[in-house]
């Protein structure tokens, strides 16, 4: 099966000051996978996503999206940052945050209109947050805030979704709701890349996985490479997880 390559990373190296955070990463992510990026704290998981998206400037390397440079393909890419990266006391409503997902296609100066509002409301509905649309964002629970971020990415109607720890600090109900949406995205042929912490749920949630610890350890289908050998290489200790067959 010749799958199209959605994201291709070549020789990516990123450093804060002297210490490399990512070292010579080559990565090919096939279209239509639901991929987890796993690795210990400080392995560079978030940095990898941020460098792919141009938020951080790499020392070397290039990123292409469907065979073209990332800068030309931005509209194909959506991003869900870590929930803790913004100030939730900012004076705005849930609907307003989700509307921001439409700003990219609007471009400079143009204001969102009824069409954009409708898209935002649909996304809110999808994540089960429609009743909270006018709620000030500080009055949402952590799980609800995460859903708002997810809705904002859905509005972008992208082909590739990058998510930075979407399950962090959310309860079991929200986690299931989010993973169901991600699986729906995959079903629709989208590519979803998730920085993930909980190794136990990797085989259940994802079909593709990348092991990362400054260097890329392995990448491929979960059923082939999610094993004790790669986990030990990545986490540096004898790691045993039972994988449900």
């Amino acid at each position: 099966m010749a799958q199209k390559i959605a994201v291709k990373v070549d020789d990516l190296t990123v450093a804060y000051n002297y210490k490399p955070v990512l070292w010579d990463i080559d990565l090919e992510i096939p279209e239509g996978v639901l991929m987890a990026i796993v690795g210990p704290n400080g392995a560079g998981k978030s940095t990898l996503i941020k460098s792919i998206l141009g938020i951080l400037k790499p020392i070397a390397g290039s990123v292409s999206i469907y065979d073209k440079p990332y800068e030309k393909q931005r509209q194909l890419v959506a991003y869900v940052p870590q929930k803790g990266s913004v100030d939730w006391d900012f004076p705005t409503t849930a609907l307003d945050v989700v509307m921001m997902g439409t700003y990219g296609s609007l471009g400079w100066i143009k204001r969102p209109k009824q069409k954009e509002k409708k898209q935002a409301l649909e996304a809110l509905e999808k994540v089960g947050m429609l009743p909270f649309k006018n709620r000030q964002i500080s009055q949402l629970s952590g799980g609800q805030q995460q859903r708002i971020f997810l809705a904002r990415a859905l509005v972008q109607n992208a082909s590739i979704y990058f998510m930075d720890e979407p399950f962090q600090g959310v309860d079991a109900t929200t986690e299931i709701a989010i993973i169901n949406i991600l699986k729906e995205l995959r079903k629709a042929g989208k590519t979803v890349i998730v920085v993930h912490h909980d190794l136990q749920t990797v085989p259940e949630y994802f079909d593709w996985v990348t092991f990362l610890n400054v260097k890329k350890i392995a990448t491929g289908p979960v059923k082939d490479i999610f094993n004790d050998d790669n986990l030990t290489k990545t986490y540096g200790i004898n790691y045993k997880v039972s994988i449900q067959e």
Partner: peptide, 22 residues
Amino acid sequence: LLFWKEFKMLLFDADFTKTLGF
């Protein structure tokens, strides 16, 4: 008034604003 949308988005989430190509 012209750049209201851009200002608001930058204030709330600068990284996200960058990924949208602004």
